[in-house]
Design a protein around this nucleic acid. Structure first.
Lengths: 139, 139
DNA sequence: CTTGAGATGATAAGATTTATCAGGTATGCA
DNA sequence: TGCATACCTGATAAATCTTATCATCTCAAG
């Protein structure tokens, strides 16, 4: 289970491990692509307060355990991650897949060269239509 | 001037060309990396209503003329774009540069192959420290 | 087990975003 | 060019979302 690695990373990065934070992370691992508000509603029945959800998302994102990405309608949606991944998002239904390959380190080095920036990381989101939505008629 | 190309693209994509939308785009071209709210405040003196700014940002983003990206503190920030570009964002001062090279079409094809998704595009944001912030001076 | 820094929940306060509607204006066509 | 109309705008109100506050609780280091 990934729970072990999650615990390890939280430990390493000095992020306190509370049941609420674990619940937030798990929700966004099982259902990636929710907004914070949607997460608030999903966790309400478990007795987790909305302020806590907001704070947890920030803490986890800070620790690199959640990834935010812009979705249609100007929404900011989140997905749980452990390692560096790229996201593949369906523009129609919002389904999110993680892509575990990254060959952009060469690109990063090149950007450093050309710009003088110190590069620390990147976020790549690929947009398209998932197999199911590809088939389906118009939205 | 890019204004010509901008007009052309708006025409092509059926986005109505109003003074307000042009103002929003120009602001985010000169000062990329603003939140919508910051844009609202910047355009208030010009007599552009807040609702209009919100609507314009959505219309322009939809037409691929603005790019949204997640910034620290959970903010969604925007930059004006004409073509497909990658963004280079300074984590400390928020400076935004556009990178006009993209060699990810091969990657997109590969993702299509492997996942069955129909890929329509991608967003790549590289994070780091700009030369000035690298030194340690304040933003 | 003890202890203290930091997290939580409830609620209030504040900020952002959207809805509504009367009036205005870009754009296609004659 | 001038017209008609579909779409846009500004103002304001209403709805949502986000943060602040504070008393209490709990994780985790020793």
């Amino acid at each position: 289970m990934q729970t072990q690695r999650l615990a390890q990373i939280m430990q390493e990065r000095g992020v306190r491990r509370t049941p609420q934070r674990l619940a937030v992370w798990r929700l966004l691992a099982e259902e990636p692509g929710l907004t914070i508000r949607e997460a608030v509603r999903a966790l309400e029945p478990e007795g987790i307060g909305q302020a806590t959800v907001y704070r947890s998302v920030k803490a986890l994102e800070n620790a690199g355990l959640l990834l935010g990405f812009p979705a249609p309608r100007g929404e900011l949606r989140y997905a749980a991650v452990l390692d560096h991944v790229h996201l593949l998002v369906c523009e129609r239904c919002g389904a999110v897949r993680r892509l575990h390959e990254c060959r952009l380190s060469g690109y990063e080095a090149e950007v450093e060269q050309k710009t003088g920036y110190r590069v620390r990381g990147h976020t790549l989101v690929v947009y398209g239509l998932c197999p199911r939505c590809r088939e389906g008629g118009e939205p």
